[in-house]
Simulated scan of single mutants.
Amino acid sequence: MQDDTSGREVLRFAPSPNGWLHLGHAYSALFAFDTAKRLGGRMLLRIEDIDIGRCREEYVEGIYEDLAWLGIEWEEPVRRQSEHFAEYETLLRELRGRGLVYPCFATRKEIQDAIAASGIPLHAWPSDPDGAPLYPGIYKGIPRERINALMWEGRSYAWRLDMEKARAEAERINGGPVTFREEGSSAKGAAGLFEIQPELFGDVVIARKDIPTSYHLAVTADDALQGVTLVTRGQDLFPATYIHRILQVLLGLPEPRYRHHGLIRDEAGRRLSKSARDMGLRELRAAGHSPADIRRMVGL
């Protein structure tokens, strides 16, 4: 797939096939599809299946069936991230060559133990926007000989972005603070130009030993490759834009615009999720609901 040169807007819906689609996915997919139609743009579907341990082919087929039932149309071929690891690895090698990432061998227990040893209670330790404890830097800056020894032992590791160094380099390339354009309603309540705050994530993981990418690196690469001009997604991913923008600047990739829409929640205000096994579209379809019913349920 090549970048679009027609001047049309390009939007996408990019689900992960690790469960059945629910109403929250329906809203996000319909939001992107309706926006593309209104703008006279193109609609892409991307399968984000880098988590090969959890993704299943039956869920991929379920995505196609559910979206087609909703009346959503998309361009072919559909890009599947699991088929493009070599492309992501090329970008990772570039960041490695510039000294912007480093291998981290820390286990979850090691991180918890390091936090405990600091004397700061775990509940008081700073967390990233996703709620995970910030990495305490256990393996940051260790000698090359130690890194080689750990790799020789076969230890698992992740590639972390050296955020302080990466932000300084991005601002040097950009000629100042890095920003992004938010259109329509946003997680912060307004449209406008927002300055990124990637330090909120600390030294974020962007790849692993066995999978040469992460959500952040893969989505940034794919949006650029597919010529996506307007990224529409849920408000919960608003902070992730900080990471995506810094990677775009570091890797010389084009900058799309963003529109972070509201989330579908249950009566208690909890956002829907696959992990909570919220009722899927296939169950709603089997219960006799129509696509028009789904649109009413999600307020479209």
Score class of each variant (00 low, 15 high):
Q2M: 15
T5E: 14
A26M: 14
Y27R: 12
D34C: 06
A36D: 00
G41Q: 03
G41E: 03
L45Y: 00
E48N: 00
D49W: 06
R54H: 02
E58K: 13
I63Y: 12
Y64M: 10
E65R: 15
A68C: 08
I72Y: 06
E73S: 11
W74N: 06
P77S: 05
H84L: 07
F85L: 05
A86P: 03
A86N: 02
A86V: 03
E94V: 14
G97T: 06
L100M: 02
L100N: 07
V101H: 07
Y102G: 00
P103Y: 01
C104I: 08
A106N: 12
R108C: 09
K109N: 11
D113H: 01
G119Y: 08
A124D: 12
P126V: 03
D128Y: 05
P129C: 13
Y135M: 14
G137Q: 04
Y139N: 11
P143V: 03
W152A: 14
E153V: 02
R155N: 15
S156Q: 00
S156M: 02
S156C: 01
R160N: 09
E164S: 13
K165V: 09
R167C: 13
E169R: 15
E169L: 12
A170S: 15
E171S: 06
E171D: 13
P177W: 01
T179L: 09
R181Q: 15
E183Y: 02
S186C: 12
L193C: 00
V204M: 04
V205N: 01
I206V: 01
Y215S: 02
A218T: 14
T220Y: 05
A221H: 04
Q235V: 06
L237C: 09
L237E: 00
T241C: 07
I243L: 15
I243P: 01
G252F: 07
G262Q: 06
L263F: 02
A268E: 15
R271D: 02
L272C: 13
K274M: 12
S275W: 09
A276M: 08
L284A: 10
